[in-house]
Amino acid sequence: MITARYAREIPQRYRLEASRCAQCATVSFPPRLVCPTCKGRTFSTITLQNEGKLLSYTVVRVGSDKFSKETPFAVGIIELKDGIRITTQIADANLEKLAHGQTVRLVFRKIQEDGKAGILCYGYKAIVV
């Protein structure tokens, strides 16, 4: 059962909540307790912009058991407008036409299921715009 573990990440997965260091303004996603830049420990919560660019990607053709029925699917590293980088699936993608630098937007999709009877797990995926 992954319920508590899933619920903990909801602000990040559903709403892209990040932390901005009060001292040096470095943004961390997910939020951290120590700023990786200046070691500051005070933060404010911000919401990341849901648009960005595709930096690099792959098409997963052999997935773990949990994702094996969804292959092939694209996963990329996206740099959001705020400069934050995330790893995410690229949904509804034409796998032949993906390219570095493409503009993408994040949408809300189902990411995985905790087995047949467990909870459904949602979050962001990118789509090429």
Binding site: E9, Q12, R13, P30, L55, S56, Y57, T58, V60, V62, G63, S64, K66, F67, E70, F73, V75, G76, I77, I86, T87, T88, Q89, H100, I111, Q112, C121, G123, K125
Partner: peptide, 22 residues
């Protein structure tokens, strides 16, 4: 990272593939 990489279905070959493409 289980919560922010693997959660999204990426595999190890996939992560190295992203590096390869870059």
């Amino acid at each position: 990272d289980q919560e922010y990489e693997v959660y999204h279905g990426i595999t190890f070959p996939g992560l190295y593939a992203i590096m390869a493409r870059a």
